[in-house]
Design a protein around this nucleic acid. Structure first.
Lengths: 199, 199
DNA sequence: CGAGTGATTGACTTAGATCAATGACCGTGG
DNA sequence: CCACGGTCATTGATCTAAGTCAATCACTCG
């Protein structure tokens, strides 16, 4: 995702393009780690089989996201990756990345920066999810993502955004509508704009 | 936190010990970044002043956690750090770390590993917070953290744990009790043990 | 001893999840 | 070109689990 300036590092590598049908697996838990991935389009869920026999969703990765980065440092995948919808994915060899990083300490530092940024963002989303009120949660999210013109461009569906901030999509739609009705925000297409509200 | 084997890197540095009274600030938003921190005891909240004038909690860091790592790569803190309770904090100079990493590519790779691990963990907590049922959320958390003897040692209060997984502490207490009553889990002191339940 | 905090339990309320149904909008294949 | 299957977006009705308020007890620390 360009947001993290990861491109410049990944650009140096020669990825393979993989196309997955809905429900198809990219890798399975305990497979030897060879690659890590970046989603071009689609959606992939990461699932761990627990000792109980139950399955736990570890993460749902959306377009633009990289995943299985931790696999770079382990020998086996600790979860399985299944396409939720038809997906196109770039596959990077972890060995190639490691080799490249050896010779490019700057890139390694860049990657460090990317990761620390990601940690920060995840902690923020985590915190946002602790806000009980749907309305406040939505506003907190927008405020955290908006640019100087108080707008957020959504690179995902409303449904996915609802999931991202931990709301039932119905609740999310309703609350958006509510906020529009009260002229607290405005929607055009894929952008949300926060109006100059006196909260 | 030893969990991430960060110690080995931090060990190479000469931190300063800082003691904060409750409510005291460690740094303020827009201060020049000089240090990053690791909490020995206590609790620190990270707060961002939004354009609205409102304050948003970005993160609450507990004992054992490092924070403001992203500051290593930026010139100003993007949030303020306030002690929630009396706290003892190790303060590491970011310049010292960067200098050390220059000369120790292995350490840099180690740090990369730590961060990628942290990203993985945060995504997991995020996912756990999407589980609506308090009971299932608690079980998911325990299953994700427990060792081979199905136990989790809690290095934080129940209240903090409740917060971490996004539950009101009352709800958390009640549900724990419930799970004990049904012999699904057992508590002794600071450990939770999942019994061989047929869920 | 008193202040402060965690742990616990009770009673109550409501906001948000859930179930359901519908329309819009694809892309696809016949 | 149209019918279809699929997904997103939207809205209504209903229900309940979890949040909130409140009070109490235990414990620690200075």
């Amino acid at each position: 995702m360009s947001k993290y300036m990861l491109d410049q590092i990944l650009m140096q590598l020669k990825p393979a393009k993989v196309r997955l049908a809905k429900g198809e697996a990219l890798f399975l838990q305990n497979d030897a780690t060879v690659n890590f991935y970046c989603i071009i389009t689609g959606k992939v869920k990461l699932i761990r089989n627990t000792i109980e026999g139950t399955q736990a969703v570890i993460h749902v990765a959306l377009a633009g996201e990289t995943f299985a980065e931790a696999s770079i440092f382990s020998s086996e995948y600790h979860c399985s990756a299944i396409a939720v919808s038809e997906s196109v994915i770039m596959s990077y060899r972890k060995s190639e990345l490691l080799y490249y990083l050896e010779g490019a300490p700057d890139a390694m530092q860049g990657l460090l920066r990317v990761f620390s940024q990601q940690v920060r963002d995840l902690r923020l989303i985590n915190e946002i999810k602790n806000i009980r009120s749907a309305r406040d949660r939505i506003l907190a999210f927008i405020e955290s993502e908006m640019d100087s013109s108080r707008e957020v461009f959504l690179n995902m569906s409303l449904k996915d955004l609802a999931y991202k901030i931990g709301l039932a999509h119905e609740t999310f739609y309703r609350e958006l509508k509510n906020l529009e009705k009260r002229s607290i925000l405005k929607r055009h297409g894929n952008t949300l704009k926060l109006l100059n509200s006196i909260r």
